[in-house]
Design a binder for these strands. Structure first.
Length: 122
DNA sequence: GTTTTGACAGTAT
DNA sequence: AATACTGCCAAAA
């Protein structure tokens, strides 16, 4: 185990029911953008020991990342639907509605911030 | 030690 | 638009 692995685990555990997150998203949240495959590995390595909601982690385009013949694929689909995750056509998750947006970025650009001092610095 | 392998994603061509 | 390539890194062999 490494600190990063734990970060990933913690983020996965935070995905709320009825929402989904993508591999890349988790990686980014955990501080390693581009490390999607690490997330994949963590899911394999830690699902049992940490009781992860593994089914809530899906591909970047809203697709469940199992082959459609796989039993796991069906199970994941079933679990997600039972949690109320909205699906679009072709068994694709409707990301616009279902993607988890962790509140990290209120950012909400304050406009018209009154200027208390004029031109003090450039 | 090295190599292979993941339920991927982002960039480049 | 569709491939191809690259980044990622811990575990098992």
């Amino acid at each position: 185990m490494t600190p990063l692995t734990l970060e990933i685990v913690e983020w996965i555990k935070k995905i709320p029911k009825g929402k989904v997150a993508t591999y890349g998203q988790i990686a980014k949240l955990a501080g390693r953008p581009g490390a999607a495959r690490r997330v994949v590995w963590v899911l394999h390595a830690c699902t049992k020991s940490h009781r992860l909601p593994w089914q809530r982690v899906i591909g970047a385009k809203g697709k469940v990342s199992f082959k459609s013949e796989s039993p796991e694929f069906k199970k994941q689909l079933k679990l997600l639907k039972s949690e109320g995750v909205p699906f679009g056509p072709a068994n694709q998750v409707n990301l616009d509605r279902a993607l988890w947006k962790p509140r990290v970025q209120p950012a909400a650009r304050v406009k018209n911030q009154p200027r208390m001092f004029s031109d003090v610095s450039s």
